[in-house]
Write a protein that binds this DNA or RNA. Structure first.
Lengths: 148, 148
DNA sequence: TAAAATGAGTCAAACTGGTTGACCGAAATT
DNA sequence: AATTTCGGTCAACCAGTTTGACTCATTTTA
């Protein structure tokens, strides 16, 4: 077991997390930059893919930004027909977000690159490690939700 | 093994990483904000604690920013006597960075909060999961270093 | 049914954290 | 002696974000 009483071990774990996350996001950032898009664009299409027909408010909560920060990139995605924003049947104030066919392809292409990185790393680290990695990340994420 | 061929599994893994990292950094961000400091300040003291007497150039490489971006927060840390910048004996162009006693206490207090979160999560996830989590993060980090 | 609240969107001003580029001075290397 | 390296600084600028104020349509409520 990792001895978290040991400062050097603490530092190693934190450093690994820092560089690990950085490596993971670097790949996508690079791809996005080539298309003149930002991380927010990716997150938007990612969450719409994951939770189809979510509302703008729900998306804001997932992203953890203000609506002003979301406004421009989301509008752009709608303008270039990657995202559809359709009024809800049950509550016409709400706009439900969904990916267009193009949008779905775009989101997949972004995701594929990151998955390729994960696959490489997973192959190296092995099944047990991967399950543990996911379990810890999920547990960490849960604390977040509770904190909000 | 996580089936990375399955889009839903891909999305789950990516989302867990996203929220996990966010939860991990949120605690420290909050503490830093109270003291009027930023993440860069934390990273600086973190890396100085991890690699005492590292040079400015080495620190820049670890942080992955320009020297202009490092300049102001580092200067601030020196001004408030959390960091000492001392000319190297062997090469007087280099300034070697070290934490003052206050700086060491400050870095520890930041780290302790993050470690508390890790401990809670580790207790929940168990030893095997934790080792796996670390192994995958380390493997991810390694890809980064190679890419640079 | 009138008043209040909610969801979405927009404009403007400001701030943060970063960038590129141009320098400088001291010290080391060639 | 010339060049390179290390650290530092100034300036302009840029992206992404925030806060705040406001509108409009719709839904909820009192």
């Amino acid at each position: 077991m990792l001895d978290l009483k040991n400062p050097a071990t603490q530092q190693q774990a934190m450093e690994a997390f820092f560089f690990g996350y950085q490596a993971f996001t670097a790949k996508a950032d690079e791809m996005l930059e080539r298309r003149g898009l930002s991380r927010v664009h990716q997150r938007i299409v990612f969450f719409i893919a994951r939770y189809p027909n979510l509302s703008v408010k729900e998306l804001l909560a997932l992203l953890g930004v203000t609506k002003q920060a979301l406004n421009i990139p989301l509008r752009q995605l709608v303008e270039v027909h990657l995202v559809n924003s359709v009024a809800s049947e049950t509550d016409k104030r709400k706009r439900l977000l969904e990916l267009t066919d193009d949008g779905a392809r775009f989101e997949q292409s972004l995701r594929r690159e990151q998955v390729k990185l994960l696959e490489r790393v997973f192959a190296e680290a092995g099944e047990t490690a991967v399950n543990g990695w996911l379990a810890v990340n999920l547990a960490l994420g849960k604390t977040q939700v509770l904190a909000d």
